[in-house]
């Protein structure tokens, strides 16, 4: 998502250069002069937060529609496929393993970083598999998207979340190839940190969806 190599430019510099002024630079050159850029935050981290903001708005739109719609009367709730408890637990654990990976990146322990990223990826795949099982369970009992409004929202929200999580798994695989091979701790963290941000967000998002679909 955030390539730091820019083949088109073929310049000895990366486009991030100004974000990292070499040394102190002429900070006190004149009134109001100084380095503009507040620095240690990499573009990828900002990008991850912006992505989180956009996806939050997307789900705010879905769920506000859901909340309005739910108060409209006819509302036969569909049953809760029990496998969702399991997937929720798996996703929560994956957030912990992701955090472990991020810390490993910060410490610079590559083997540990690779291991935790790998475990998180597997847990993510397990979660997605579990969600599919939940869909199968509902379909087996005759509940489809068009059955009633609650089922429509169930499929819509879990589906949309699943797609974003699949994107997260893609990011994890990208991190798995890039982070442990990074030259420095900081570079490894620049890869792992945005992925961790996104992953924790998806975890929180799922808890919110699970809660409004079944809790309240």
């Amino acid at each position: 998502m955030a390539p730091t190599t820019t083949p088109t430019l073929e310049l000895p510099r990366t486009p991030r250069e100004p974000g990292r002024p070499a040394g102190g630079g002429p900070r006190g050159g004149g009134p109001g002069d100084g380095s503009a850029v507040p620095s240690s935050v990499s573009p990828a981290r900002i990008g991850a937060w912006l992505l989180v903001a956009a996806i939050t708005v997307l789900f705010a739109a879905f769920t506000s529609t859901y909340l309005v719609r739910r108060n409209a009367g006819d509302w036969p709730a569909v049953f809760l496929p029990p496998v969702l408890w399991l997937t929720t637990a798996v996703l929560l654990i994956s957030s912990l393993t992701m955090e472990a990976a991020r810390r490993a990146a910060g410490r610079g322990t590559r083997a540990s970083l690779r291991r935790w990223l790998g475990i998180t990826t597997v847990l993510g795949l397990v979660f997605l598999g579990g969600q599919l099982v939940a869909w199968r369970q509902l379909a087996a009992s005759g509940v489809f998207m068009a059955t009633n409004p609650h089922s429509a929202f169930f499929y819509l929200l879990t589906g949309a979340h699943g797609l974003h999580l699949a994107g997260g798994i893609g990011a994890l695989i990208f991190a798995l190839t890039k982070a442990p091979a990074a030259p420095t701790h900081a570079a490894a963290l620049d890869v792992a940190d945005p992925v961790a941000t996104y992953w924790h967000f998806l975890d929180g998002l799922w808890l919110y969806l699970f809660l409004i679909l079944y809790g309240i």
Binding site: A53, I55, V57, A61, M145, P149, A152, L156
Partner: peptide, 25 residues
């Protein structure tokens, strides 16, 4: 754009489901 367009995306997805999946959003 970042904060407004996702809302239309959500609406468009729901309308597509209404048209093709028989839902009633």
């Amino acid at each position: 754009m970042l904060l407004a367009f996702p809302v239309l995306l959500a609406a468009a997805v729901m309308l597509l489901f209404d048209r093709h999946a028989g839902t009633s959003f």
